[in-house]
């Protein structure tokens, strides 16, 4: 597609997005749900960071808290999220509205329900353009056609007047991406953008992200539980388990030297051949269940499911510490022998 490789990932200098010690709690009837605990990462210009982990480990909560979409009533958020050095928590709701859709945009997990069923595709794309730029409706419409073409929707002009239910899931997800990229955002948060799609369409969607990164230098937080997707497009990876990041490094590292037993478990069911071909597999089913999110004991949360767990694992929670340069892991056995 593109020959200009704008930014080789890990080597970026200035961080666009810095998430620092993020904590998110929901108060529910069943008690306080600690969905995200002490999550930190930085994202450079043109970098694609993959956030992986089993369902329920807090990925979407991280995603939603970045553009402050969690709603302030039931969620308690701590830590800081900085966009180009500006702490988003200090912005008023009005200022935040200028950030959403313009600097940070989101592609949601559910392509079938994330578009308004009563509005045409064109109207929904034009809405975000005219929200942030002073342009005429006709100019915005022309722009919408370009965007639809960009995300690979054939016959774009005619599609403008289509309603969401007339499009397939893959087409809807492309429309969501068109909306997300409409205002050339600095950061796109894509929450499992391909999970609901079938394999052939997935490749096309991932291609769009890669192209955006290459041509516009967009930074992308790509949430997935598909390691094939990670191998294909991500520059770096953060593995989450029960609300925490347990391992963080470059994509090459994670496949070459997976250090956390949980990560290895995830990789276990992934034949390398499939990896090479860009084939996709779901995360392996690791025996055991995720602990309830209402408790946060001072121990390794993965210990009950871990083949290498020892008494030391439940004596204190292992910190996320450097394993080799550029590779951090939260496991006291990380330095041990490689064969699991």
């Amino acid at each position: 597609m593109s020959t200009i490789a704008a930014a080789p990932a890990a080597a970026t200098t200035s961080a666009v997005l810095e998430v620092d010690r993020l904590h998110v709690e929901f108060s529910t009837e069943g008690g306080c749900v600690m969905a995200v605990k002490d999550v930190s990462f930085t994202l450079g210009r043109g970098e694609i960071l993959a956030l992986v982990g089993e369902s329920g480990c807090g990925k979407s909560t991280v995603a939603m808290s970045i553009p402050r979409l969690l709603g302030d009533t039931r969620a308690r958020i701590e830590g800081s999220i900085r966009l180009d050095g500006v702490d988003l928590a200090t912005l008023s709701e009005r200022q935040m509205r200028h950030v959403r859709g313009k600097d940070i945009s989101v592609v949601f997990q559910e392509p079938m329900t994330s578009l308004n069923p009563a509005y045409t595709i064109g109207r929904q794309i034009v809405e975000v353009i005219r929200q942030h730029e002073k342009v005429k409706r006709s100019a915005a419409m022309r722009r919408a056609v370009e965007l639809l073409a960009l995300v690979g929707i054939p016959d774009a002009r005619r599609r403008l007047s289509a309603f969401p239910h007339e499009l397939s899931g893959g087409m809807r997800q492309r429309v969501m991406i068109a909306i997300a990229v409409a205002c050339d955002p600095k950061v796109i948060i894509a929450d499992e953008p391909t999970t609901a799609l079938d394999v052939t369409i997935q490749a096309g969607v991932l291609d769009i992200f890669r192209r955006l990164r290459d041509t516009l230098g967009t930074a992308i937080v790509l949430i997935t539980h598909d390691l094939g997707v990670v191998a294909e497009v991500a520059d770096s990876v953060a593995v989450m388990y029960a609300g925490r990041v347990v391992e963080q490094c470059s994509t090459g590292e994670i496949f070459a030297r997976p250090a956390h037993p949980y990560t290895r478990g995830l990789l276990g069911a992934l034949p390398s051949r499939a990896l090479m071909r860009g084939g996709r597999r779901r995360l392996a089913d690791i025996a055991g269940v995720v602990p309830p999110p209402t408790v946060d004991p001072d121990e390794c949360q993965f210990a009950p499911r871990c083949p290498r767990a020892t008494a030391a694992c439940v004596a204190a929670r292992p910190p996320l510490a450097p394993f080799v340069p550029g590779h951090r892991v939260a496991c006291i056995h990380a330095g041990g022998e490689e064969t699991a």
Partner: peptide, 25 residues
């Protein structure tokens, strides 16, 4: 509380527009 209202909010629209989206449905 529908997903598409969250989408609208993620575009940076105000509360009034969010309500208009929901009201239309």
């Amino acid at each position: 509380s529908a997903d598409y209202v969250r989408t609208a909010r993620s575009k940076g629209v105000g509360r009034g527009t969010e309500v208009r989206h929901a009201m239309r449905n």
